[in-house]
Design a protein around this nucleic acid. Sequence first.
DNA 1: AACTCGGGGCA
DNA 2: TGCCCAGAGTT
Length: 214
Amino acid sequence: MSTKKMSKEDKVSALLKLFAEYYPNPKTSLNFKTPFELLIATILSAQTTDIQVNKVTAELFKKYNTPAAILKLSQSELEEKINSIGLYHNKAKYILKTCQILLDQFEGQVPETRKDLLKLSGVGRKTANVVLANAFFKAAFPVDTHVFRVSARLGLSSGKNVSKTEQELTEILPRDCWIDFHHWLIEHGRAICKAQNPDCENCFASYLCDYFQA
DNA sequence: AACTCGGGGCA
DNA sequence: TGCCCAGAGTT
């Protein structure tokens, strides 16, 4: 089968089936009940796995699930609650500052636009899009390093830059698969479609991958 | 553009 | 045991 004769839609459809088949176990996603919880969990998720974040937030969110509640904690107290994951010192600082900004500028609510989300501390383009897509169901696909590289190799995106990739993936991927597909791309990028020396021989998607065929 | 944070994952 | 990193802020 040649990828040249497949439409973009058919290619996406085929990839969705392959990923679901190859990674059958339910992918662990960030646990959250509210937009605020997702925002905090996503800030915590930088350079770490969702599994590690969920271990921390399971306890944290029992009592501290609003900006006002978290601001009752000192930085060292918050650090103590999240220090089983990496970069906890910076993350505690970002979270406290973000909670203060939410109260001061957004009436304690998580803003629903990218522009306002980027005003928060510890929130960059990836975190902003996770919140927009998964808490507010807006059209904004989160792109991290793995997603950028793997989607470009597969031919789902141009690989030009992150902004372009966000736009391309937002347009081409069915809305109801975003959370799963994001996890699949990350897991695949880590295990098979690595930045250096990708293991194409063991890749289930090589037959429709632009990078492999080139 | 390079550097920093940091525990976990993996060779 | 040492290297790299499922980001974002700083200089």
